[in-house]
């Protein structure tokens, strides 16, 4: 017997981006992300905040734990968000005081056997850089929403695919530089395409199927952001850091 939830969590690197949800969520594109992989960059030590919006549901009666850790796995903050609904205009705010540390951080949320970032909520910050993703990232708001990513430093070729439908990669001018409709690479996880990139440059992805995921092929990962300014590639090893080691001490 297999657990749906545990299966969801096994896709730990998955991210879900729900974008362009109008009406209840307002006009601003909304990103709800990710299983474990929300990343933030604090360029210099300062006080900063995380904003959780969504719901910690009743079956997660003891709340949901939010963990912030760095690339070494060191936990810099841990807090339990009580059960309840946190709307856009009244998010749950986590404040991280200046602590002499700066750099890239990952935010993980876990509740009761369920993926918390994803179906239940999203985390944003007041930092200039925030991104969501991993081996794949679902853009639930596609095709309306076109998230951004930044080509990693030192990388001149990337390979991305779509879990379903078509994927196009646009440069900052909006010109398509890759399209899975043209000479697609047939992969198990859907059509893919390999394309040249300029290291450090921001690109936009366009999916034509709702709920499709952007699939990254190793060694690269995909980190999607709301805007080109927010896009960055987290420090190597951050997603794999065993932040739970020593957590029981």
């Amino acid at each position: 017997m297999c657990s749906t939830w545990s299966a969801a969590l096994r896709a730990g690197a998955a991210a879900i981006l729900l974008a362009g949800i109008a009406g209840a969520q307002g006009e601003r594109p909304v990103i709800i992300s990710s299983a474990y992989d929300a990343f933030f960059r604090e360029p210099a030590d300062r006080e900063w905040r995380l904003f959780f919006t969504g719901e910690v549901p009743v079956y997660s009666w003891a709340g949901a734990a939010l963990v912030v850790h760095d690339a070494t796995g060191r936990v810099v903050h841990r807090e339990v968000i009580p059960r309840g609904v946190y709307p856009e205009d009244k998010p749950y705010v986590v404040t991280l005081k200046p602590d002499g540390l700066a750099g890239d951080f990952r935010v993980v949320m876990v509740g009761h056997q369920i993926q918390f970032l994803g179906p239940c909520g999203m985390v944003r910050s007041d930092l200039p850089f925030e991104t969501y993703g991993g081996a794949r990232a679902t853009v639930a708001g596609a095709p309306a929403h076109k998230p951004w990513f930044r080509a990693p430093e030192g990388v001149t070729t990337m390979k991305l695919g779509a879990s379903k439908g078509r994927l196009r990669v646009l440069d900052r001018a909006g010109k398509a530089i890759a399209d899975t409709r043209q000479n697609p690479l047939k992969e198990k996880g859907g059509d893919a395409v390999e394309f040249p990139v300029t290291p450090g440059q921001a690109y936009q992805v366009e999916l034509d199927a709702a709920g499709a995921a952007v699939v990254a092929y190793a060694p690269e990962r995909i980190h999607l952001s709301h805007s080109p300014e927010q896009a960055f590639n987290p420090a190597p090893g951050l997603a794999e850091a065993k932040f739970w080691k020593g957590a029981g001490q």
């Binding site: 657990s3 545990s6 969590l9 509740g111 056997q113 932040f243 739970w244 080691k245 957590a247 029981g248």
Partner: peptide
């Protein structure tokens, strides 16, 4: 603590950490 002791960060019911998570709630 269970995540640490078992070196597993999981929440599914087929893991020690996951059943501990259920205990928390």
């Amino acid at each position: 603590a269970v995540c640490d002791q078992r070196d597993e960060f999981r929440a599914g019911i087929y893991s020690g950490a996951g059943t501990t998570m259920a205990g928390v709630h």
